[in-house]
Nucleic acid binder design. Structure first.
Length: 678
DNA sequence: CATCTCACG
DNA sequence: ACGTACGTGAGATGC
């Protein structure tokens, strides 16, 4: 079966038939690309992936269609007690919270919905505002017919904290954090988003609306229908209860149905252990880290911002002088015109939008020809630091806590890594000296110290283990500088005669291998001829033959299974791996990388999940995760025991599930701020 | 809202 | 012949 985009011209008259056929044949990604190319919508058919959740209506407990008219509004204690009794009797209940915003640290709870079965759902409005003319005290008065917040929560708390009643949520961390601020510690939980992620990472997204459409054949009421969008958007407490109730109850109903769908399929998908040991237990851990936040010194950021602004103004004047005209330095389009048209500098490449591309590596090359590109690079660095860090971070300081509270996305990265948003605290500058100073604004609270522990070369260690590279494993066992050892093995340079340049090249190759190396990519990274780069790769494969075998075996596995796995059984689906065309190359390299990056992600997840018990009793909190680093805040007197316990947990995190042939090593640092601790 | 650019591991 | 390093999130520009 070979279908390429080139065939489309011929087939276009029957495009709909073709697209439906491809969809039924499960060539989803290809179907989507063709549909996009034709500018038509891809047909939506029930999911039929045997590795994922079952198709709509097949092997499922019979569920009646969603009937919003069956939902009810709970307005008094007696009715609420009836719902709670039913939830207790069943031992499981789906929960959803409605709030005034997306930020769990600042949003207020507006209402709670419960579902105990299909169409058996209710909404408990709590602080909806009265409509104009409805209340005595204007628009801030509460609408009538709502239980008092405290009274409702007092009744709900025992249910939500009852160890014998499973609470089913979609994106549980959000609701767990909201309810934690009202003194409720929701447990135990299941999370349909994380079930979907464990089964189908790489296949599709895991948001509720997408899951409802895919697995229930149902489109929930869009939130925009209630609160609008853009400037005129209102908060949920301004939505009429009669409109809010079907929306909110539906979300609980859908969550319950998704759970009923996914729960029996985890085992068949082979990811029960992944879900139960790497996904679900992370929810309360991350919730506590996010609520703890990290103290950020606004004055430090403010001073740096002013200094950056001054330097930028000076650079901008110089740039305009060098260009002979005034233009927006922040506009790549305008800069490209100046560099490649007006000044006639070489190497101008136009992107798909017909404009010149001016990425840093191009400007670095041009810096040998003219002064202007170098000034632009300096300006860009300052612009980035100012806008993304010194300015934007200040807006994220919570006025109540004086701290910055990021939010981790558990089901975002396909490999099992976390992502950090609002703000992203996983990309705070560190590589440049000027940038690193941003970290001086991340400080320990009074009497405390920041402690950073990070895995040393974890991905290379995992590669050495998975691919069985004896020379690499031995180097790690001997505690050698791994890039120098690689360089020595490849180029025959004795370790005591190693130069920084040879080591740098070996380092680039080591990273390249993790990324699914290509001659082209290595050549570009090292700025050497492609043939020379290919020579390096050939030599690497020659000296470390296990690497080549690993790459070939991984590719073959991905091709026949359409997924790859981490050492802990996490599955990362690679649906594009058998596609014809350019997508296959990306999928191939992603398939090489995913088991390595994903295993490292699994290991630090295991460490985080065990960490709280391990440091229990110490005056210390885990604050941040940055892929291979954990950052703690600890009382000054407890630094040493914290480091000892945290290191033990991190270094032993793979055990006992997986035995690694290489030692796992964790480095530690401490200081009054993140710059010093790292 | 897409694109470009750049911050991190 | 062609085009490629893996995984992310966010701000500014400009359609």
């Amino acid at each position: 079966m070979e279908v390429s985009l080139d065939d489309l011209e011929v087939l276009e008259p029957d495009a709909e038939v073709l697209l439906e056929f491809l969809t039924r044949m499960e060539f989803r990604s290809l179907t989507k690309r063709i549909a996009d190319g034709l500018g038509v919508a891809a047909p939506v058919l029930p999911d039929t992936d045997p590795r994922g959740a079952a198709p709509v209506g097949q092997d499922l407990p019979a569920m009646p269609p969603i009937d919003r008219s069956a939902y009810s509004v709970v307005r008094d204690a007696e009715t609420l007690q009836g719902w709670i009794a039913q939830a207790m009797a069943r031992g499981e209940v789906a929960i959803d919270t409605e709030t005034t915003g997306l930020n769990e640290m600042t949003a207020d709870l507006v209402g709670v919905s419960l579902a105990t079965g299909p169409n058996m759902a209710c909404y408990i409005p709590l602080i909806h505002k009265a409509e104009a003319g409805e209340g005595l005290f204007g628009s801030d008065a509460l609408a009538p017919g709502q239980m008092a917040l405290e009274a409702a929560l007092a009744l709900l708390k025992p249910l939500l904290e009852d160890a014998s009643v499973l609470k089913i949520l979609q994106n549980a961390k959000y609701d767990v954090k909201i309810l934690a601020r009202y003194g409720i510690d929701v447990a135990p939980i299941d999370d349909t988003m994380l079930m979907s992620y464990a089964m189908n990472a790489g296949l599709h997204g895991h948001g509720m609306d997408a899951l409802a459409e895919r697995y229930l054949g149902h489109s929930p009421i869009p939130i925009k229908d209630l609160i609008g969008a853009g400037k005129s958007q209102i908060t949920f407490d301004r939505v009429k209860i009669d409109a809010a109730a079907p929306y909110a109850a539906e979300d609980a109903d859908v969550t319950w149905r998704l759970w009923k769908t996914f729960k029996p399929q985890l085992h068949g998908a082979g990811v029960t252990t992944v879900y139960e040991t790497l996904e679900r237990p992370l929810v309360p851990v991350l919730a506590r880290m996010e609520m703890a936040g990290i103290k950020v010194d606004r004055d430090v950021l403010s001073r740096m911002s002013n200094a950056f602004a001054q330097k930028m103004a000076g650079l901008e004047a110089e740039i305009h002088e060098l260009a002979g005209e005034s233009f927006n330095v922040g506009s790549p389009a305008q800069l490209g015109e100046i560099l490649f048209e007006k000044m006639g500098l070489p190497g101008g490449q136009k992107g798909k939008t017909g404009k010149y591309a001016t990425p840093a590596d191009v400007l670095e090359d041009l810096a040998t020809e003219h002064d202007l590109p170098g000034r632009v690079l300096d300006w860009r660095q300052l612009s980035k630091l100012k806008s993304t860090y010194t300015d934007a971070l200040q807006d994220h300081i919570n006025p109540d806590t004086g701290r910055v509270h990021t939010s981790y996305v558990i089901a975002g990265a396909n490999t099992g890594r976390l992502a950090s948003t609002d703000p992203n605290l996983q990309n705070i500058p560190v590589r440049s000296e000027e940038g690193r100073r941003i970290r001086e604004a991340f400080v320990a609270d009074q009497g405390k110290v920041l402690v950073s522990l990070d895995y040393s070369q974890i991905e290379l260690r995992i590669l050495a283990h998975i691919a069985g590279i004896e020379a690499l494993k031995q180097a790690f066992r001997e505690g050698q500088d791994i890039h120098a050892a690689t360089a020595s093995e490849m180029f025959g340079v004795p370790l005591d005669q190693m130069t920084s340049d040879v080591r740098r090249q070996a380092k680039a190759i080591n990273f390249g291998v993790i990324y699914g190396i290509s001659g082209f990519g290595l050549a570009r990274n090292l700025r050497i001829p492609r043939a020379e780069a290919q020579g390096f790769i050939d030599r690497y494969f020659d000296r470390f033959p296990g690497i080549k075998d690993y790459m070939e075996e991984t590719k073959a596995f991905a091709k026949s299974n359409s997924y790859v796995q981490t050492l802990f059984g996490r599955k990362i689906h690679t649906p594009e791996i058998n596609a014809k065309g350019p997508g296959a190359g990306f999928a191939y390299r992603a398939a090489i990388n995913a088991p390595i990056q994903g295993t490292a992600a699994d290991i630090i997840r295991r460490a985080m999940i065990r960490m709280e018990a391990a440091i229990d009793g110490l005056p210390a909190r885990m604050l941040l995760q940055v892929h291979d680093e954990l950052l703690f805040e600890v009382d000054e007197g407890a630094v040493d025991p914290l480091i000892a316990r945290a290191r033990e947990v991190m270094e032993g995190a793979a055990s006992p599930a997986v035995h690694l042939d290489v030692p796992i090593v964790v480095d530690a640092g401490q200081g009054p701020n993140w710059a010093k601790a790292h």
